[in-house]
Design a protein around this nucleic acid. Structure first.
Lengths: 201, 201
DNA sequence: GCCTTAAGGGAACTCCAGTCCCGATAAGGG
DNA sequence: CCCTTATCGGGACTGGAGTTCCCTTAAGGC
């Protein structure tokens, strides 16, 4: 409610931008290394090579820093595949998710960011937006498939895409089942079967 | 590697048991109220009405306390439903998950425990065991259905049960989609469609 | 190129989570 | 019922995360 502008909003160029980039990169490193509970703003400052005070002033809390990192990541969305065959597109998507989650750095980073979202409402909003962007990008595979007649009309494209990722994240977070290419292909096949059966609307 | 026994292992009766019960209940309250990042052992001691030193000595860290709570919860597994119709059984399971996750206290508690698992390896192991117990209990619905001929032979029962929960947790943790009875029924229907199509093995 | 002031950064300070010490209480074997 | 000692718990202590103060640097308008 205060009308005091955020630090960095008035003169966002030059040094300020360099500091933000360095801090976000350091935050990713520290999150991947130590997890969200180990996201110490002092250490982020040290790794980024900027003043400790700066990080506390501009981000203020681990949750806010994680949220800013998520916003930055959402802006770098990768294009989806377009095989003209929804089965192959969904399998591509599932394999991409598995590769991301099993990558040593990315996998730990995603776990840490989900932990951040569970601990901080600001990070939670940023995470929801991040996944909204990702899902929206891939939903095109499904809407295209409906137009081609591969899937029943009325199919909810976003839900089909979410259904591909869901069992992979469930394995990562809840059961600890191994995440490999076979798991990816099963997830894609299950989502496709459900979509074909017309239960995703 | 030290052969010093854990505090509470030699004389686990009477006062020690009362302290553990009080601390685990307080830990659940604090986790549901403040989330894992707010699980302060000093506050747990205050809420439980026991000495601060006791909590630090017996549990030592928020992660270990969360792990002990999860072990306690795993031992109180509820029996699954047995309708003789796998569609109804899966829908029951999905609705139970949704009811749990949308319950004001339970929902926050589960979120906090997943955050704990993401921040602490000990809690992660306890969470995997917790879900292994839950999934195993309900897997019987699927093996029974295979025997009745409702589902193809070779269907992986545990994966079908996991497939029911997965989209619900994905909605809770990643996308923030609303969790209601319709979401539960969609999740059950999608898992059933995939199982019937024979893609869950 | 100059000037205003937004933003960065060093260093001292505060506060509290987590530790340590030691006396008090009661579990459990005899 | 008594004795040994595991466990509990109050209170002092400590280290480091987060804050504050204030000087330095450079962004951006002219």
């Amino acid at each position: 409610m205060s009308d005091a502008v955020q630090p960095g909003a008035v003169r966002p160029g030059g040094r300020t931008a360099r500091v933000r980039a360095a801090v976000l990169r350091a935050a990713g490193d520290v999150l991947a290394e130590n997890g969200f509970h180990g996201l110490d703003l002092g250490e982020v400052a040290r790794v980024a090579g900027v003043g400790r005070t700066t990080v506390y002033r501009r981000w203020g809390s681990p949750g806010a820093l994680a949220a800013d990192l998520l916003q930055d990541m959402a802006e770098r969305s990768l294009p989806r595949s377009r095989h003209g065959d929804v089965g192959r597109d969904l399998r591509d998507n599932a394999r991409l998710v598995v590769r991301t989650l099993t990558d040593p750095r990315q996998g730990r980073l995603f776990k840490a960011l989900i932990a951040a979202a569970l601990c901080d409402e600001q990070a939670a909003r940023a995470l929801r937006r991040f996944y909204a962007v990702r899902v929206e990008e891939w939903a095109g595979c499904v809407t295209d498939a409906v137009e081609r007649g591969e899937l029943p009309p009325g199919t909810d494209a976003r839900r089909v895409i979410a259904a591909v990722s869901a069992p992979l994240y469930y394995a990562l977070l809840n059961t600890g089942e191994p995440l490999d290419e076979a798991a990816a292909d099963r997830a894609a096949a299950a989502a496709l079967a459900a979509a074909r059966a017309g239960v995703v609307r």
